[in-house]
Deep mutational scan, measured.
Amino acid sequence: GFTKEQQRLGIPKDPRQWTETHVRDWVMWAVNEFSLKGVDFQKFCMNGAALCALGKDCFLELAPDFVGDILWEHLEILQKE
């Protein structure tokens, strides 16, 4: 899971503390893990605080249908851990 990747890359547990690099690493991991298609990494050029502050509607505009939902749900789980 993502926990191993977080440990390997030194990504903080709390997504709100992520840098732009951490956000990119997470999106890249999720794309590979969940076989997601059509993700534009440029749209995720922000730090974790900005990403978490978007709200669901704005977040879902960053990625194609269903893909955004998967990313959003995973981000929500990470914020609760």
Rank of each mutant, 00 (worst) to 15 (best):
E76Q: 12
S35P: 03
E33H: 13
F34E: 04
Q42K: 10
M28H: 12
D69N: 14
H74E: 13
W18F: 00
Q6S: 14
Q17R: 11
A30K: 05
P64Y: 02
C45E: 14
G55E: 15
R16A: 13
G68C: 08
P15I: 11
G68V: 06
F44M: 06
G55P: 14
L71T: 01
V31P: 01
Q42P: 07
E61P: 07
G55C: 14
E33V: 07
L78C: 08
L36N: 02
P12V: 02
E73P: 01
N32T: 12
V23L: 02
V27W: 03
V31K: 08
H22Y: 03
L51I: 08
F41T: 14
D65L: 10
W26R: 01
P15K: 02
N47G: 08
Q7C: 06
F66W: 09
H74C: 08
R16K: 12
G68F: 01
Q42S: 13
K56F: 01
V39Q: 03
W72M: 05
F44P: 01
L54K: 09
P12K: 04
H22C: 02
G48Q: 01
W18D: 00
F59R: 04
E33T: 11
V67K: 05
K43Q: 10
V39K: 04
E76W: 09
G55L: 02
G68K: 03
D65H: 10
A63L: 13
K56L: 03
V39H: 04
F34V: 02
D14F: 04
W72E: 00
E20I: 09
F41Q: 09
V39G: 02
Q17V: 14
T21W: 07
C45D: 14
Q17G: 08
R8H: 10
E76P: 07
G1C: 07
L9C: 10
K13F: 08
C58K: 13
L71C: 01
W72D: 00
F41E: 12
L62C: 06
D57P: 09
W26T: 00
D57R: 11
K43S: 08
L71Y: 00
L9I: 08
W26I: 00
W26G: 01
E76F: 06
G55A: 14
W26P: 01
R8V: 09
I77S: 15
S35I: 03
R16L: 13
L60R: 12
R8Y: 07
D57T: 11
C45G: 14
E73H: 05
I77N: 15
V67M: 15
E20W: 04
Q7L: 13
